[in-house]
C-alpha cells in the first residue's frame, strides 16, 4: 500500500516548523516517527496535503531531570526510554509501559510525543501520563502553554492541541521516596492494542498512608481515562486489600468499554478490575522497597 501524495518538509528549527503549520493549517500533519500516521495514510483514513517532519528540529530528543520534573522531548523514541538507565531505575511505570508498546522495530521509530498527540485511546502512554499527573508542553504562535495530561484527551483521536500547536515535551513530576508504579496490560498477542490496561503510580507517607495515587486506564472508553473516583477512594488512606478491591471495582464501573473482537464489554470491565488490583499491588511493593 502506498500513501496518497503529499508535500514534505523537514524544517530545521521549531520556528520554521510552526510557520509551516500556520501556513498550511489543518491540511498539514506533524510527522514524528510515523508509525501511527503512515499506516493511517496507507489506509486512506488520513490524507494530509503536507507532512512536516520534526526529525531535524533540534532539542526535542532530550531526557533529563530538572526543576522537579523528568523532562522528555516529544521526539524521544520508545527505544530510548527502554534503554535509559534513569527510566529503568526510577520510573518503572514508564519503563513497563514502553516495553508493552508494539514491537522492537516499531519502538525503534515510534516517539513518546507521537503516541500522545495521536489521541488514540488504544495507545499506552496516555494512561501512564495521567497516572503520573504529567504535563504536556505545547508551543504555538501564541507561545508556550502547559496542558495537564488529565485534560489533554478530549475525544476519539482529538486532543487539546490546537491545529497550529506542536507538542514539544512531556514533564513527569519526579516521584518522592517511597513511590512505585506499574503497568498491567492484557493483549491478545505481542504488539496488539490492549484489551484493557491499567497504569498505577503511588507514593506512601511516613505513616504508611497513601500520599499520592494516580490510576489511568487504556482502551476501555473512547478516550484514555483517569480513574478519579478510585484515586479519591485511596488518597490519604491505608492500602488495605479491601480498599484496593473497592477502588478496583470503581475503576471497572467508571470505564466504558465497547464489545469488539478483543472481548465483550463485561469481560473488559472484569479485566479492568483485576488489572487495577495487580498493578496496584506491584506498585505498592515497589513503593515499600520490595
Amino acid at each position: 500500500m502506498i500513501p496518497p501524495p503529499f508535500t514534505y518538509a523537514a524544517p530545521t528549527s521549531l520556528e520554521e516548523a510552526l510557520a509551516l503549520l500556520q501556513q498550511h493549517g489543518p491540511m498539514a500533519k506533524i510527522l514524528a516517527g510515523g508509525h501511527s500516521l503512515l499506516p493511517m495514510m496507507k489506509l486512506r483514513l488520513l490524507e494530509p496535503e503536507v507532512l512536516i517532519d520534526l526529525r531535524r528540529v533540534p532539542g526535542l530528543d532530550e531526557i533529563r531531570e530538572e526543576n522537579g520534573y523528568l523532562h522528555l522531548g516529544a521526539m524521544v523514541r520508545e527505544v530510548e526510554l527502554e534503554e535509559h538507565p534513569l527510566i529503568r531505575e526510577k520510573y518503572p511505570l514508564l519503563y513497563e509501559t514502553t516495553r508493552w508498546i508494539a514491537d522492537p522495530q516499531v519502538r525503534n521509530m515510534g516517539t513518546i510525543g507521537g503516541n500522545l498527540a495521536h489521541g488514540d485511546p488504544g495507545n499506552d502512554h496516555p494512561a501512564t501520563m495521567m497516572a503520573y499527573d504529567a504535563q504536556l508542553v505545547a508551543v504555538g504562535p501564541r507561545g508556550e502553554r502547559v496542558i495537564p495530561a488529565r485534560e489533554f484527551f478530549l475525544d476519539f483521536y482529538t486532543t487539546a492541541l490546537e491545529p497550529d500547536e506542536i507538542l514539544t515535551a512531556i514533564r513527569i513530576p519526579i516521584p518522592p521516596p517511597r513511590s512505585g508504579g506499574a503497568y498491567e496490560k492484557l493483549e491478545r498477542k505481542v504488539g496488539d492494542y490492549a484489551t484493557a490496561a491499567v497504569a498505577v503510580q503511588l507514593s506512601l507517607a511516613e505513616d504508611g498512608t497513601l500520599s499520592y495515587v494516580g490510576i489511568g486506564l487504556t482502551n476501555v472508553a473512547h478516550v484514555p481515562l483517569f480513574a478519579a473516583r478510585s484515586c479519591a477512594h485511596l488518597q490519604g488512606q491505608r492500602p488495605t486489600p479491601e480498599r484496593i478491591d473497592e477502588a478496583a471495582q470503581m475503576a471497572s464501573e467508571d470505564c466504558n468499554p465497547r464489545s469488539d473482537l478483543r472481548g465483550s464489554a463485561e469481560y473488559k470491565r472484569a479485566m479492568v478490575r483485576e488489572l487495577t488490583r495487580r498493578a496496584f499491588r506491584r506498585a505498592l511493593e515497589r513503593a515499600q522497597g520490595g
Binding site: 523537514a10 510515523g34 503512515l38 499506516p39 496507507k42 516499531v106 521509530m109
Partner: peptide, 29 residues
C-alpha cells in the same frame, strides 16, 4: 503484510532495525 506487523521488510537504519514498509524514503535521507 504491508501494515507494520510481520517484519519481513526489516532493514537496519543507522544500526536500528526498522520496518521499511512504514518508513518514508525521505525520512531515511
Amino acid at each position: 503484510c504491508d501494515t507494520t506487523h510481520c517484519g519481513a521488510c526489516t532493514v537496519l537504519m543507522n544500526g536500528r532495525a526498522v520496518k521499511s514498509c512504514t518508513v518514508l524514503t525521505v525520512q531515511a535521507d
